[in-house]
Simulated scan of single mutants.
Amino acid sequence: MRNNDARLLMLDRDAVAALLQPDDVRAAVREAFALHAARSARVFPLVREELPGSAIFGIKSGDVPSQELLGFKAAGFWPGNREAGGEAHQATIMLIDPRTGRPLCVADGNAVTTARTAAAGAIGLQLLARADSEQLCVFGTGVQARGHVEYALHALPSLKRVRYVTSDGRQEPAFEARFARRCDIALAGAARTAAADAAVAASDVVITATPGREALFSADAVRAGTHINAVGADTQGKRELPAGLLERARVWADDLPQARRIGELQWGHELPAAELGELLAAPAVRAPGDITIFDMTGIALQDLTTVRMLYERALANNIGQNIAWPW
């Protein structure tokens, strides 16, 4: 291709939504875990900074040299967006040609982030949770919580009941309606209360998907055999899990250095832990009484493999805005 023939594919929110398919996202995320475990890919140093107005801005980037895959996601959390009826989480993902440095694709990353994170959580459930798990407790009812419950119900068909916990204990009818035909779903109560502890104690799987900075439940509420997907801790100073729980559990992370910096493992720097991708080749042997935790901070490779899939599908189906980008 001549320099003046270069093109840039723009995938906006609607184009991304038309292309995202759960099975394909799971496959892309699984590939990201495998590449990371084999050290066939690189995760570059994270940028994660607080901005005025309680906003958070970050950049996650990486590459897969053998596949000529390079790119980044610029993303963060802008809570003030909610006042205008917008989504607080914002993300934009770019694929770059590693041979030239020229952009290939710019994609709205909001739905991608939700889907790839939920897909990673589902893989964690398949690899770590008890296969006979029937009871799920989720903290949060936002975009991430909805995505994780959706993917969890697919990953663990044995799940029959979902209890959800909100920050203020208020019922969320829209959240319930989303899953009512697929499981028994009910409000458990408010976080950091006896009701939340009771919901955790009754559950086989716990998913924490909040922007919180303090423990959501008591460590003693977690019974033997429970698996936890910890999603919300993604910045220094944030946590969802109670003190003392990491010490009782077997812990896996998507990327250990990153998790020890911004995930739940920032509260247990010296504790033993491993990376989830290792389990793809050698599944963990789970004792019935094990408490397991997947510390999910999200890695760039998950974004890149997912958007590459969207990019290839969009080109094949003439979806998106393909514009000239000469140099």
Rank of each mutant, 00 (worst) to 15 (best):
P157V: 09
P22H: 05
Q67A: 15
E172V: 15
L276F: 13
L20D: 00
V112G: 06
P79N: 10
L241H: 05
R248N: 06
D24Y: 01
T210L: 02
E150F: 08
T305L: 05
P283Q: 07
Q302I: 05
R313F: 11
L127S: 08
D290N: 10
A274W: 05
R82E: 14
F57R: 13
A316Y: 02
L95G: 07
L51P: 04
G189I: 07
E247P: 09
A259Y: 00
A88F: 09
Q144A: 10
I123F: 00
R261A: 14
D5K: 14
L70Y: 02
A196F: 15
A38T: 02
N3S: 15
V138W: 00
A190L: 09
A38G: 00
D108T: 06
K238Q: 11
T100M: 08
M94S: 14
G225C: 07
Q236L: 12
A27Q: 13
A91H: 11
A6K: 13
C137R: 05
M1H: 12
V200S: 12
A316F: 03
L245Y: 05
A253I: 09
Q135L: 05
M94H: 09
D14Q: 14
D254A: 11
W267P: 08
V64H: 06
R213W: 09
A27N: 08
V165S: 04
L276H: 13
R170P: 03
L265H: 10
A118R: 00
D184M: 14
R181P: 00
R102K: 12
A324I: 01
D24I: 11
K238D: 04
